[in-house]
Computed example of a mutant assay.
Amino acid sequence: MRTDRTLVAVAVLSVLGVGALVPSSAIVAAVEPATTDPVRFGILVAGLYLLRPLATLPTTPLAVVVGYGYGVAIGIPIALAGVAVTVVPVFLVARRFVRTEDAGTSPGRVGRVLGRARDTVERYYETAGPIRGVVAARLAPIPSDVATCGAAISGVSLRQLVAGTVVGELPWTVAAVVVGASTATVAADGVGELGLSLALACTGAAALLLAGPISRRLLFYSRPAGSAD
């Protein structure tokens, strides 16, 4: 059985750095002076994406920064690439912890709770499928690292994670880049301009994406035992 240490580590990855949060506006605003120097700006943006998990910075404000510095046409592919890259370290670390097992060790109360949560996430991906499941998780307005850790503990491959992330983050990224490209000054507060309508639309899209697999699963369990197709 997995130990408390392993399971707790996976949970900690989901809220990485909560005890040392850095305001998004402070980080994002610090990039603005570098927008006049394309090379310096590019280095700073790359650094922000690579260090994003440690700073608990959401990916959407970074897309605003990219849009401000590069515009829509160039900003969208750069922001999507940044999102794809920044989820990889979290995924690999989470999967490494999950694979660490101590045979014969009791998981304890915390371990049992987290184990049930893991079973729930695994059933979700079993029902939705790996890529569809990642896409729906990215469309839904939930923290990026939580979705990444969920995929890691459910056996989703890195290729499937990256593919699902790019597709699922596309509407959020496009909207954020457009906001960044249309603002006079870059600030994380600009993300608020995306509005509730985008969150509702993306949540609705995620629900539609999952409707088919969930319906088939419910139909499967509602069949009498021993019935054939």
Score class of each variant (00 low, 15 high):
residue 28 V to S: 03
residue 162 V to Q: 06
residue 215 S to E: 05
residue 136 A to P: 04
residue 202 C to P: 01
residue 42 G to C: 14
residue 4 D to W: 02
residue 102 D to K: 08
residue 45 V to N: 03
residue 81 A to C: 13
residue 76 I to C: 09
residue 57 L to A: 05
residue 10 V to I: 15
residue 27 I to K: 04
residue 38 P to R: 01
residue 118 R to I: 14
residue 27 I to Q: 14
residue 91 F to R: 03
residue 199 A to H: 07
residue 221 Y to S: 15
residue 140 A to W: 09
residue 79 A to V: 09
residue 27 I to N: 02
residue 2 R to S: 09
residue 118 R to K: 12
residue 144 S to T: 15
residue 88 V to A: 02
residue 3 T to V: 11
residue 76 I to W: 10
residue 14 S to N: 04
residue 86 T to G: 03
residue 55 A to C: 08
residue 175 A to H: 09
residue 217 R to L: 09
residue 63 A to D: 04
residue 121 V to A: 06
residue 132 R to W: 00
residue 23 P to L: 11
residue 42 G to W: 00
residue 181 A to E: 12
residue 2 R to V: 14
residue 68 Y to S: 11
residue 146 V to P: 03
residue 174 V to T: 09
residue 174 V to E: 00
residue 158 L to I: 13
residue 93 V to G: 01
residue 204 G to S: 06
residue 171 P to M: 13
residue 223 R to D: 05
residue 59 T to R: 01
residue 77 P to Q: 02
residue 123 R to T: 12
residue 178 V to H: 11
residue 152 A to P: 02
residue 27 I to R: 04
residue 107 P to Y: 04
residue 57 L to S: 02
residue 220 F to V: 11
residue 43 I to D: 05
residue 99 R to P: 07
residue 32 E to Q: 05
residue 39 V to W: 09
residue 200 L to I: 15
residue 9 A to F: 05
residue 189 D to A: 13
residue 7 L to R: 10
residue 178 V to Q: 08
residue 218 L to Q: 09
residue 183 T to E: 12
residue 22 V to T: 02
residue 61 P to D: 12
residue 216 R to W: 01
residue 134 V to Q: 05
residue 109 R to W: 14
residue 207 A to I: 15
residue 6 T to I: 06
residue 196 L to I: 12
residue 153 I to L: 14
residue 138 R to C: 10
residue 135 V to W: 04
residue 101 E to N: 13
residue 214 I to Y: 09
residue 195 G to D: 00
residue 202 C to S: 07
residue 185 T to H: 08
residue 164 G to K: 06
residue 180 G to N: 06
residue 20 A to E: 01
residue 11 A to D: 04
residue 183 T to D: 11
residue 126 E to T: 13
residue 26 A to V: 12
residue 165 T to V: 05
residue 42 G to Q: 07
residue 226 G to M: 10
residue 53 P to F: 06
residue 84 A to I: 12
residue 200 L to T: 08
residue 87 V to D: 03
residue 154 S to Q: 07
residue 92 L to Y: 06
residue 147 A to F: 10
residue 193 E to L: 15
residue 97 F to C: 09
residue 51 L to E: 11
residue 76 I to Y: 03
residue 172 W to L: 07
residue 80 L to W: 01
residue 59 T to C: 08
